[in-house]
Computed example of a mutant assay.
Amino acid sequence: MGFPSSTCQGRYDQNKARTMLKLYLAGPEVFLEDATDMGRLKVELCARYGFEGLYPLDGEPVMAGAGGQGLSARIFGANLALIRQADVVLANLTPFRGLSADPGTAFELGFGFALGKKVAAYSNMPGDLLNRAREHIGAAQHEDAAPTLMADGLHAEDFGLFDNLMLAEALMSCDLPVKQAETPPADLFRDLSLFEATLEALADAQGSALSRAG
């Protein structure tokens, strides 16, 4: 087995465990001005820990100002093809322009999970979803309001999870690392220390599985 067995669909045979596993690197880094350089750094870190990093292809054309539905369709198809090639989807779920993970990243994690891939993740933002909602939206002010009701008239999830339960439960079912920062770094989307810690934990998990396989 490439990693410990779990309720997650993803499975690997012993021969696969002995090869370089491919990690699809999902995350909002593709929107950075230096998206290509960031992708190169992440791929290099993957190699350092014995993995092949597959970085999404949308960063460069998007940041270059190209547009149109034809381009978006090509990006969509290319990224899905990369996920199909991968053994693991490793997602940066740091909240992006809001309370929760980048929606494209969330889709890619769910798509990989539905294909039977293992999924792992990290977030450079501490805290749970409910408290972030209270900080950004504010709690409802009337006296009989439920603790989960926000000022916008909508409830926030209250499961003590770092993000939406569908993401969190998918990750927990795979028994792979889910790292969350205790304090936010100075640069939420360029700090790779937690990404590297996740790679190290993945390498340790694969090494343990190989030891058991003999």
Rank of each mutant, 00 (worst) to 15 (best):
F113H: 12
P184A: 10
L129P: 02
K22M: 04
P184E: 06
L21A: 01
K16G: 07
Q9G: 14
R190T: 13
G10F: 13
L167Q: 10
S211W: 12
D102F: 03
D163N: 11
P28N: 03
L194Y: 06
L154G: 03
G112T: 09
D191M: 05
L167T: 08
L54E: 01
R74F: 00
G214C: 00
M1N: 12
A170M: 14
R18G: 07
L161T: 12
H136G: 05
H155P: 01
L80E: 06
Q180D: 05
G127M: 07
D187R: 15
N15R: 15
D204T: 13
C174K: 03
Y122S: 07
A139Q: 15
L129M: 08
L188Y: 04
S123H: 08
F113M: 08
P103M: 12
Q85S: 14
L21Q: 05
Q206S: 12
Q206K: 14
G112L: 09
E135A: 15
L45S: 14
R190D: 02
Q180E: 05
M125L: 12
Y24K: 03
F195Y: 11
T7P: 00
L165M: 15
K179E: 11
T183P: 03
R212E: 15
S72V: 12
T19F: 00
M150D: 07
P184K: 01
R190E: 05
D204E: 15
A120S: 15
Q206G: 04
S123G: 06
A133S: 12
L41G: 01
P177I: 08
A140D: 13
E200H: 10
A140H: 14
D102T: 05
H155M: 12
S100D: 10
P4R: 13
P4H: 12
E44N: 09
L109I: 07
S6F: 06
